[in-house]
Amino acid sequence: MIGVLALQGDVREHISLLESLGANAFGVKTLEDLEAASGLVIPGGESTTISKLAVNFGLIDAIRNFVATKPVLGTCAGLILLSKGAIGALSDQQLFGGLDVTVERNAYGGQTHSFEAEVEFATGSERVAFIRAPKVVDIGSAEVVATLEGEPVAVRSGRVMGASFHPEITGATTLHKLFLESI
């Protein structure tokens, strides 16, 4: 069973994308839910909000533990939360870690500069959405999974993957397929 962290964000889109690829997926809101998941998706949403809720609802330690031991995929807000450092986030922002990268929040600009574009995977290109998207500004030891204009927009450190964009909004399947293969 694949869990999708369901504190806030576009949970439904991730669940339907995973199900369309033949996986069983459910929303994760509690410690018990987390225990039942063999992999976890951190969806798009507001990274500040998801982080505060994870703290306020007493889930942050369990999520960090999950990220350290099991396959995890994060999109947009999920990438920010999985990074080791986020420029432009609140100074006391709690991150989940897992990816050896530093990101900059809203680095492509605010909502008026949100856009759709084709990103390049090793296997080909796919159209995805960048919405108030974060940018990977320091890739550390992570490997590149997808690029836009030569810059990394999806990255991987071991079993943890993160993307600046939303494949779940356009229905692009490559990233979720890679994630499911890792489980």
Partner: peptide, 13 residues
């Protein structure tokens, strides 16, 4: 899609 997409990110909030 990106205009409606931002609202998708607010869901559950």
């Amino acid at each position: 899609l990106v205009k409606r997409g931002l609202a998708e990110m607010l869901k559950g909030g």
